[in-house]
């Protein structure tokens, strides 16, 4: 049926020339910006309005009256931030490999991207459990609740991004990501850049601004 074939081409027609899926990811990212803007707004609104410790950037007295160090550990998170930033660069190299049909480049850099992402999530898990160990539960004070909620939702987004990248990696390893399907990686990469960019806002807001 030559007829049906001719119409199959029309399924790729778009008025702007931009692929539907790519535009959808951009649209979704626009919406997600408002999600994180709201969470960051809540964090900033409540900054410094705790009725008790722990404090993010200053020493505080615990319930027993013992002086405690500030909560946030900036060097560790700075390192995690750097890795996350690098991973955004790595995923571009992986995409370049996918588009040029260079399998080695694709898989190598995709693995590197995923490694950085896993390290970042691992860092956050360590940070959270360390805070819990130091007595900062989810409901301890407003700082605890807003901090865990904001960075936790970001961490969830990173985790979902990882799940997506790993799914693409599995497809690539099975040899099913030829250059004409590189868009499947590009979509995941766009989302990955987004979670990275959000962190570029969250990191100074939470960790650097006193």
């Amino acid at each position: 049926m030559a007829h049906a074939e001719a119409h199959a081409d029309e399924h790729h027609y778009t008025a702007t020339g931009i692929d539907n899926k790519k535009l959808a990811i951009w649209t979704f990212i626009g919406s997600e910006c408002m999600f994180f803007a709201s969470l960051i707004g809540v964090y900033l609104t409540y900054k410094g309005r705790d009725v008790s410790g722990p404090k993010p950037h200053a020493e505080w007295l615990d319930k027993a009256g013992v002086l405690q160090e500030q909560m946030l550990e900036i060097p560790l998170v700075t390192f995690g931030t750097a890795l996350l930033l690098f991973s955004s660069f790595f995923v571009v190299l992986a995409l370049n490999g996918a588009q040029r049909g260079n399998r080695k480049q694709l898989i190598g850099w995709l693995v590197a991207t995923i490694f950085c992402g896993v390290f970042f999530v691992g860092m956050q898990v360590y940070e959270f459990s360390h805070f819990a160990h130091r007595g900062m539960g989810y409901t301890t004070n407003l700082f605890a609740s807003t901090f865990y909620t904001l960075t936790g939702f970001h961490g969830t987004h990173v985790t979902l991004g990882l799940l997506w990248l790993i799914s693409v990696l599995v497809v690539a390893l099975r040899g099913k990501l030829p250059p004409e399907k590189a868009l499947n990686l590009e979509m995941a990469a766009l989302y990955w850049h987004f979670v990275d960019v959000v962190w570029i806002v969250i990191f100074p807001v939470v960790y650097l601004i006193r």
Binding site: M34, F35, S38, R49, T139
Partner: peptide, 30 residues
Amino acid sequence: LLSFPIITVALILLMIDRTFGTSFFVPTGG
């Protein structure tokens, strides 16, 4: 696209307040 994420955040925070006992909207907790 731009307004639903905002109520989603509000609903999530209220739900967390109700479920886990945080104080996003509870004056005694700030």
